[in-house]
Structure formats: C-alpha cells, structure tokens
C-alpha cells in the first residue's frame, strides 16, 4: 500500500446521456471504456455502441493521490454494477439526456437505484442535450426533485465541455463541504 489518497466519483444515468464523454473530457489519461454494440432494443435505437461494464478515468492529485472517475453502464441489465461502483465513492453525478422519451422518469429511476448511497452522499444532476430541447425545463427537474424531497442541484451541461464537467464536479465538492 502506498498510503496515497484513492477516492472516486461515479457518473451514472441513462443511455446516451454522455457518461463516457464526460469522463473522456475530464480524465487526464485515455479512459478505459468497455463499449460494445448494444443488445437492448431501446439502446440500439439511440447509440451504435454502449458501455457494458464501466468507464474509467483518472485525475492525479497533488501528493500522488488519485481521483478515480467511474461511469456506470447505461443498459439496465447491468444495474447490478451500480452498488459495486458507488461503494466508497464521494458522490454521484447523474446525467440525464433531455431528448430521452421521458427524462424525468429517468432521473427518478437513477435516484431510486442509488437510494441507499444517496442517504449519506450527495448527487448533482446534469442535464445533457438541453440545447436540443428545453422541455422538460430545469424548473421541471427541480419540481420533480422537490416532490421527492431531494435537494440536489440541476445543471444543464455539454458533456464535451471541460468547463461544464468541471462545474459538475465542483458543485459536488461544494455540497460535500457545505451541504
């Protein structure tokens, strides 16, 4: 054991929301990605390839520590991976594709899936493809969160934008510090 800090943040969310892209954008090393042709019908319609095990990226911290960035698979048959990946994580970034058929339900699904983890750890909701459609609006997401009693911030982001991914992570850190 080196004694260096090793910690992680997990990106989760629906297929096509940009989890792999976000990790690729921020990771300092070429991320490990386990993309294959999808098998679920709903996924085939949306993407040529999808993640089956996990995405993985890294950020080296001063003093030699590492922040690991994990992305969960989008296909629901791999949901069992969620518990494994979130174990010991600092927090969760939930990415939702706003062009999805029912994005609010998707958010609901992933918050429920991570219910136990979120009892003690924070989440930030990132809405992608918001430039393509603003319905539902950020307000709608907040209303849905309010109904659930969840306090998480909602940010519309472009997963390809380094600034936007940084904003997601910085917001998560702010909640860890003050929330």
């Amino acid at each position: 054991m080196t004694g260096f800090i090793q910690t992680k943040i997990v990106f989760t969310g629906c297929v096509g929301a940009g989890k792999t892209t976000a990790i690729t954008t921020i990771s300092e090393k070429t991320p490990v990605s386990t993309e294959v042709k999808p098998s679920e019908a709903s996924v085939i319609k949306r993407k040529a390839t999808t993640t089956v095990a996990m995405d993985y990226g890294e950020l080296t911290l001063e003093g030699g520590g590492v922040l690991y960035l994990y992305g969960t698979p989008g296909q629901r048959r791999f949901d069992f991976m969620t518990d494994i990946l979130t174990k010991g994580a600092l927090g969760l970034i939930v990415l939702i594709d706003n062009t999805h058929e029912n994005p609010l339900d998707e958010m609901d699904y992933y918050l429920n899936l991570n219910y136990r983890f979120l009892l003690k750890s924070p989440a930030v909701i990132g809405i992608t493809h918001y430039d393509e459609t603003m319905q539902p609006s950020v307000d709608d997401y907040y209303s849905a969160l309010a109904e659930r009693g969840d306090p998480w911030p909602v940010i519309h982001v472009d997963a390809r934008s380094l600034e936007d991914v940084r904003l997601l992570l910085n917001t998560l850190l702010a909640i860890l510090e003050y929330g």
Partner: peptide
C-alpha cells in the same frame, strides 16, 4: 477529508 476536497478542487 478537507485536504482531499482541497486537492480535488485544485486539480480541477
């Protein structure tokens, strides 16, 4: 934990 958050923030 504070140090960890500071290091991540600095890295970002």
């Amino acid at each position: 934990h504070q140090n960890l958050l500071r290091k991540i923030r600095n890295r970002l």
